[in-house]
Write a protein that binds this DNA or RNA. Sequence first.
DNA 1: GTCGGTCCTAACGCATCCCTAACGCAGGCG
DNA 2: CGCCTGCGTTAGGGATGCGTTAGGACCGAC
Lengths: 235, 235
Amino acid sequence: MKVLIADDDPQILRALRIMLTARGYDVLTARTGAEALNEAITHHPELVMLDLGMPELNGIEVIEGLRGWSQVPILVVSGRTDSADKVDALDAGADDYVTKPFAADELLARIRALTRRTPTVSDEPVIRFGPIAVDLAARQVLRSTEAGSEIVRLTPTEWQVLDVLVRNPRRLVTRQTLLTEVWGPQYTSDTGYLRLYLAQLRKKLEPVPSHPRYLVTEAGMGYRFMPDADDPANN
Amino acid sequence: MKVLIADDDPQILRALRIMLTARGYDVLTARTGAEALNEAITHHPELVMLDLGMPELNGIEVIEGLRGWSQVPILVVSGRTDSADKVDALDAGADDYVTKPFAADELLARIRALTRRTPTVSDEPVIRFGPIAVDLAARQVLRSTEAGSEIVRLTPTEWQVLDVLVRNPRRLVTRQTLLTEVWGPQYTSDTGYLRLYLAQLRKKLEPVPSHPRYLVTEAGMGYRFMPDADDPANN
DNA sequence: GTCGGTCCTAACGCATCCCTAACGCAGGCG
DNA sequence: CGCCTGCGTTAGGGATGCGTTAGGACCGAC
């Protein structure tokens, strides 16, 4: 199992590497936030351990950068004990937060708990409907035309909205969950931008945007992604 | 979102209930391990907060009992700070571990982190009667016809009424309960719209809307959902 | 400084939904 | 037998929600 450790302190990096290697983990390391993002993109680790106080990009920015395209479990290991730091990191997308100094066996148990819960998030990370193919891992959308296939460009926000919807096929996603998933837990009332992004997504993905077939709206409740009826991906 | 809190200390129970209720969570409580398991089985909460030192069954046993059939996120809130306790709880199946005393905002952030990750993989509460299948999780109603199945569209209010009824199979639901559940606690007298929505539901769901078989009215009292007699889902 | 892209606000039709009002009908009761 | 109460049903107005367009604020790149 590949684990990425990002910390600017070589001491900690070395200690963690030894501890995890001895337990059979494959350890990748990074010393800056930018380096951490690069490593994550190229090697797709199954767990990311992150320090908050790194140069170039701080921990929160790294979390947001990761969460833009990956569901990998993120464990923050930080010297900051202030609860505000914890709240910020967790709300940004981290899954757990451990303060230094930490007990080695507890850290290992938390790592086991995090990796246990995600036994391969999705064995089929590419979702197809109509002429569209959504590759969640590669963060890419392709539309097949008669002359091959073309790349559909989506903005970050459009991606997050689409991500939530396609991860819940056939299920109703309420306006509120969509808002909190994309814009954060403090957003609960819609002033109208959800409609906007749904319209843009439909313009880019639907065969007939004015008559949506896959990104269906349920009046007064929310939205729903309806896969093709013959799609074998049913779960 | 339903949250089950299991703790033998009434003080903590009360504090947590207030804190979570204010944030919009539906709080269930239990004072013993056995009670916690019972509550979990009957109400299927989306998060379980657990104290380790409870009578009857200790925390670890409760975790194991839950994990036997449920993937619900488990957050341990315990006074024990020993790392061995944390390791045991986490390895038994808990997802996070917070020691008392805890910071309220951190606890809330951890709750958000835990519930965010699970897209409510909840067990499949599909209720069937006649040609109708009600999928509560997906918020979808299907009617099977000779040529496959078609989607039945329900308005939000129709959904809420149906939701209350099917969650109480064979039980009488008084007019007042229905009103307060759907329209809010201040509504107590019916000016006639309940009749309206029942009529619409019957028109959409009953085989013979003029002679209701599943959505039965009890004159002067309320309504009752009667499942098929041979339905194995009896609880 | 300029430019392109993205995010959000505001406003306007339009469809849908909620609720009121009225009428018909059945059963209970004096 | 006639009245009354409670429920089912229908139709229509008002309100809300949604899709759509246009335009300004903000930010990083060049």
